[in-house]
């Protein structure tokens, strides 16, 4: 009996530990989001008090909306490219930083620098690099005689999305490297010594020791970069605003312009709801798949 009241008292105190966080989080994030779930069932324009309940009409319209389909496609292309390239660069960089080169401390610090910049600064920097007339990239191409390769990198629908992929990869490869490197340093050195004695080559060692033991950091890197890329907004908004001709329109930029610029708030939030489920399902699937690999 006494024990029961003790534990009830303890729950009561623990509720006090939780309450401030729950209140702030619910009031300023989850509550508004749930509000948006409700607005996605209306035709509210975000300004006036009046709105009608339209049921699932916004979602039905979304399925026939060619621009939204394009935004989903772009988001997927953007995410797949950024995640794959970023990790494909992150692993070898981490291996190099784990080797016996002398400058590794300094190099590690330098490779990480882009990750601390704001997407705004990254966006403006690359806008100038990609600028068709005086931009660095075209000037370099001209100087080495590759005039035919010059492009309006952010202005041409064919290249714009991939140009932004390069920006995102540039910014966050160092971040992936840091996480891989920490994982590499937990792999005991005698495993490699044993493999050396057994006569295993470097590639063989990477395949059967390093790569399997990197599983935890592969999981965390892929999930982190996927969520970050799916939700990316600033880096696109400050460079192309989704253009030209929707070439870089992703779910976040379309949501923003639909809800705020075009004042179709109900419709815009319906996009956000769809996007939430996308992110949720993709990250859940990744965690389950990659975790299973970790266990074996």
């Amino acid at each position: 009996m006494l024990k029961m009241t003790m534990s009830r008292k303890e729950h009561f105190i623990l509720a006090g530990f939780l309450a401030p966080a729950i209140i702030v989080y619910t009031t300023f994030l989850l509550g508004p989001v749930l509000g948006s779930f409700f607005y996605s069932l209306t035709n509210w324009n975000g300004l006036y008090q009046t709105m009608d309940f339209v049921g699932l009409r916004n979602f039905v319209n979304l399925m026939e909306d060619g621009v939204f389909a394009k935004a989903i496609r772009n988001t997927m292309i953007f995410t797949v490219f950024v995640v794959l390239i970023q990790n494909a660069i992150g692993v070898p960089l981490a291996l190099a930083m784990d080797s016996r080169i002398r400058s590794k401390q300094v190099l590690k610090t330098l490779f990480f620098v882009p990750a601390i910049l704001s997407p705004l600064v990254v966006g403006y920097t690359w806008t100038y690099i990609y600028e068709p007339q005086n931009g660095v990239l075209n000037t370099i191409l001209r100087t080495v005689g590759l005039t035919g390769w010059e492009q309006s990198w952010l202005g041409d629908p064919q290249f714009a999305l991939y140009s932004i992929v390069v920006m995102a990869v540039w910014q966050f490869s160092g971040y992936s490297m840091v996480i891989y490197l920490a994982n590499l340093q937990t792999i005991p050195g005698d495993l490699y010594e044993a493999a050396d004695i057994d006569g295993a080559g470097k590639w063989q060692q990477f395949k059967s020791i390093t790569f399997p033991l990197l599983a935890p950091s592969i999981t965390i890197n892929i999930v982190l970069s996927s969520i970050g890329t799916l939700k990316a907004f600033d880096i696109i908004y400050v460079t192309t605003k989704g253009g030209p001709y929707y070439a870089t329109e992703t779910m976040t930029t379309l949501l923003f312009s639909t809800a705020f610029t075009k004042s179709s708030f109900g419709y815009g939030t319906a996009m956000g709801v769809v996007m939430f489920f996308f992110v949720f399902i993709i990250s859940l699937a990744q965690i389950l798949l990659l975790r299973r690999r970790e266990v074996h």
Partner: peptide, 17 residues
């Protein structure tokens, strides 16, 4: 309940917020 917040696009909260 807290973890769900990691996956929410902030844009979704903006107008009500």
């Amino acid at each position: 309940y807290f973890l769900a917040g990691i996956m929410l696009p902030f844009q979704l909260a903006m107008v009500p917020l």
